[in-house]
Computed example of a mutant assay.
Amino acid sequence: MLIWYRLNGLTIKWATLYKEIFKILLAIFLISSFSIWLFYYIYVPDGSIIVEICFLCFAIFMHLAIFLVLTTIVEKIIDFLLPNVDIYLLKSKKLHTIFCILAAFLFTTVGFLAVASPPTVKSIDLKIKNLPPSFEKFSISLITDIHIGPSVGQKRVKQIVDISNSLQPDVVTVVGDTVDGFLPYLSERALPLANLKSKYGTFAVTGNHEYYHSDIDKWIEFFQNQLNLTVLLNDHKIISKYQKSNETICIAGVDDYFTKRLFIDGHKMDPDKALSACPQNGTTILLVHQPHAAAKILDETKQKVDLVLSGHHHGGGLYITYPFAYFFQGSIIGVLL
């Protein structure tokens, strides 16, 4: 309603015909923005232009909504503090609305260029206390929040796989929100993940989006049988470079924090179960999708954890949500020591 009201306010001095045309275009924009939810429940071809346009409209809508809400709040404050001041820059709602529109298009364009570009690699060197000597220079490829779905197809997934393989990691970790939709519609798009290569295996945990659509157990079966992912459901795997060696890395993974509010048999975040069998004299790496869940686990568990790998907030996601991501998640990057 706020967007409709503010944008229609721009047409006060327009001729009636132009006003009606503008209203029609605005209605098409709003319908396109919210039609993205339909694409999760019907099959759409991989790489559909219509889907891309609708998701772009939604991105513009989200930015515009946030900017207009913030602008309206600022306007109310200015009116309260400076009721008798008539400064065009401070009091013109039309000017403020135009600025919000331009800012929404700018931020959306920057975001679109970012997702249209090949995935980038961020290399981080970590020093872990008491890391077994045989694991010096041990490398992990961290992949998160692919969101295979209406707007993320097989081409993007293959790009991610090719880049990860080029790094020749010792281990690949996939920390949730891998898929975003129904198994029959998305299985083919996810197949390139079966080609992920590493020395010691590919380990995955669930994110909140895995629980939104298809039966989670069917997705997990598909991950394990078709994509060769070792899904850690409150479980762990011990890696040793040499047989009968006491030098180990324990990779533990938990169900997503979202399961705390669900009642799905066999799915509830249980870090103690995941960590209990990890050797205390080795190095323990915990995979947990949401950073604030990771922080909660570290505060409450008595088990030893040396490194946590998380995802969930897409590095802040929308640029203007950085403060919210940090406030609610406690981190912008997905690595906790």
Results as ranks from 00 to 15, higher is better:
289 H>I: 00
137 K>S: 11
311 G>A: 10
162 D>N: 15
307 L>D: 01
157 V>F: 14
33 S>A: 14
204 A>H: 06
56 L>H: 11
190 A>D: 05
61 F>T: 07
230 T>R: 02
126 L>G: 12
279 P>C: 08
242 Y>M: 13
284 T>G: 07
113 L>E: 08
91 K>T: 13
211 Y>P: 03
158 K>I: 10
120 T>K: 15
283 T>S: 10
197 K>W: 02
42 I>D: 02
29 F>H: 12
293 A>K: 02
24 I>E: 03
273 K>W: 02
254 V>M: 04
325 A>R: 06
293 A>N: 09
307 L>W: 03
268 K>A: 06
310 S>L: 04
93 K>H: 13
31 I>G: 07
3 I>L: 10
58 F>R: 05
168 Q>T: 13
218 K>I: 12
63 H>K: 00
41 Y>H: 12
294 A>E: 04
213 H>M: 09
50 I>M: 12
109 T>W: 03
181 G>L: 14
264 I>K: 05
85 V>S: 09
248 T>D: 09
223 F>Y: 15
200 Y>K: 00
238 I>E: 11
142 L>G: 11
251 I>G: 14
17 L>A: 07
79 D>W: 08
253 G>Q: 13
220 I>A: 00
262 L>P: 00
78 I>H: 01
209 H>I: 12
321 T>A: 08
231 V>S: 08
145 D>C: 11
2 L>D: 02
47 G>A: 04
31 I>M: 09
163 I>P: 00
95 L>Q: 02
299 D>R: 14
273 K>D: 03
301 T>D: 04
221 E>R: 06
207 G>R: 13
233 L>S: 11
295 A>Y: 09
311 G>F: 12
67 F>L: 01
66 I>G: 03
109 T>Q: 00
241 K>I: 01
127 K>G: 02
225 N>G: 06
62 M>P: 04
335 V>C: 12
